[in-house]
Design a protein around this nucleic acid. Structure first.
Lengths: 170, 170
DNA sequence: ACTTTTTATCTCATTACTGAGATACTTAGT
DNA sequence: ACTAAGTATCTCAGTAATGAGATAAAAAGT
């Protein structure tokens, strides 16, 4: 996601939009940049384990939730249906997860961490938590909690604005 | 960028990391989700003009700053060197921007909006500003300003933590 | 003047997806 | 039971990038 730009028009015309738009646009710029910067630190930490961000997302999800249907994984990791197949294939090839049949529904399949995958996450996740803690160290604990509350409100409202549908197609 | 997960370990062990890590991780989750949700609304608006987010980013940048060296575009839009060539090629094919020689440096080239590109941005940017305003409508103006200050601080600290280098390689 | 180093852009093979459609199974309706 | 509609996953062609290396020019060092 490329960053939105920050500046005024090249020729110094008065913009044809008002205060509310300016405020929202400026907020969108700092939001993108903050997410980009923290995301880059997170990605750098993840790359040390030779994993992509999306792969790590799936491993982390299974680490915390246990075996999950592929459809559940898709909804939570926000990737297309083909993308889940692709990521799960690769993690399977590396022996970190495996597909398991679903007893009630022969169409469906679980993704579950293998022993090797569990061991990896037990080793890697705590240091990842430290990397994220450090990435957020620019804000005090109190500021982090303020930011949390504001971002949660913002995110829920924006998600609702799209309709409960289509967080990602499949 | 896939969303980080939110939950605790499947087996109810106490996590091996402390309060500071939990707070930062939770903040990272809401930060990603807010950026994702607002970004999706932004992207949906941009798609109405048959542009990708990255293409729109370049057009918006040139709209606001005027002609810019490709290297400048690269730094601001946070894309790889090959990516700039690719995006600029496509926008040029569509007649929205053009490359211009740089008089002082025969290696370098400017990207500049064509008349057609300027007309498009004049038509499209104000409605994009409205889309972003609406996407942020979950927060009051005062809350938006608080969020702005916090995110700016967070983003600057995280960017500094990577070293002034490598926002994106090229 | 002549290397060496740095800088700006482009090329190209590869990657990590997307999304439309195919396949296989399940659920609901009749 | 039979058919229609719905759902879960997979396949595959295409896309938007990445990033290492090529090319060319400029700047610095000697």
């Amino acid at each position: 996601m490329a960053s939105p730009s920050t500046a005024r028009t090249a020729d110094d015309e008065t913009p044809r939009y008002g205060e509310a738009e300016e405020r929202a646009l400026a907020l969108w710029v700092v939001l993108s940049r903050a997410a980009q910067a923290v995301g880059a630190l997170s990605a750098a930490d993840i790359a040390r384990s030779e994993l992509t961000v999306a792969e790590f997302g799936v491993l982390e999800l299974l680490h915390h939730k246990g075996p999950l249907l592929l459809g559940e994984v898709q909804k939570r990791v926000l990737v297309s249906s083909g993308g889940v197949t692709y990521i799960v294939d690769r993690l399977s090839e590396r022996g970190l997860i495996e597909r398991r049949a679903c007893p009630n529904d022969r169409r469906a399949r679980y993704a579950a961490l293998t022993r090797k995958g569990k061991a990896l996450m037990k080793q890697v996740f705590p240091q990842h938590a430290v990397a994220i803690r450090d990435a957020m160290a620019g804000l005090s604990p109190a500021e982090q909690e303020q930011a949390h509350a504001l971002l949660r409100k913002m995110g829920l409202a924006a998600a609702a604005a799209m309709g409960p549908k289509a967080v990602r197609e499949g």
